[in-house]
């Protein structure tokens, strides 16, 4: 399960603290630090530890959103061109044998690169 964790400026090392407290191994897929929007990390945790980890993070002062799915794929807009396939760093997109686009949202790290690369605006972030 992916969690989008928003950290407050000059905050303590929250992710490290949560790993230490809960013993759950957290994988940081992507992290960003921005002067205006603060710090944000996309982390991957085992499904069964999702509630425990997010509760602990919140108690330490982080904003946490549980992301049910990765990139959102609009099948009506999509024409199955494949422009997204080669620019995705996680191989989320592929063709099936009938050249229909397949999207494995579980692999998605929500980097957003494919959104601007889709000529048909068929990809969007769902959070």
């Amino acid at each position: 399960m992916k969690l989008l964790v928003r950290l407050i400026h000059d905050s303590k090392p929250i992710i490290a603290q949560v790993v230490k407290d809960t013993g759950v191994l957290i994988n940081v897929d992507r992290a960003r630090s921005d002067a205006h929007e603060g710090e944000e990390a996309l982390v991957d945790v085992p499904d069964e530890a999702c509630i425990q980890v997010s509760d602990r993070m919140r108690s330490l002062g982080a904003e946490v959103r549980i992301l049910e799915e990765g990139i959102r794929h609009d099948e009506e807009e999509c024409v199955d061109c494949g422009a997204c396939i080669s620019i995705c760093p996680k191989k989320v997109f592929s063709f099936d044998k009938d050249w229909k686009l397949q999207v494995e949202t579980k692999k998605c790290i929500l980097c957003g690169r494919c959104i601007i690369s889709c000529p048909h605006s068929a990809l969007s972030l769902s959070y």
């Binding site: 024409v79 199955d80 061109c81 494949g82 422009a83 997204c84 396939i85 080669s86 620019i87 592929s94 063709f95 009938d98 050249w99 229909k100 000529p119």
Partner: peptide
């Protein structure tokens, strides 16, 4: 899906749709 260029494998993207 991939081609070889200067001994490196590169992922390809079609911009047109073969399905359509």
């Amino acid at each position: 899906g991939t081609i070889e260029l200067n001994n490196e494998e590169i992922t390809t993207s079609s911009l047109s749709s073969f399905r359509r």
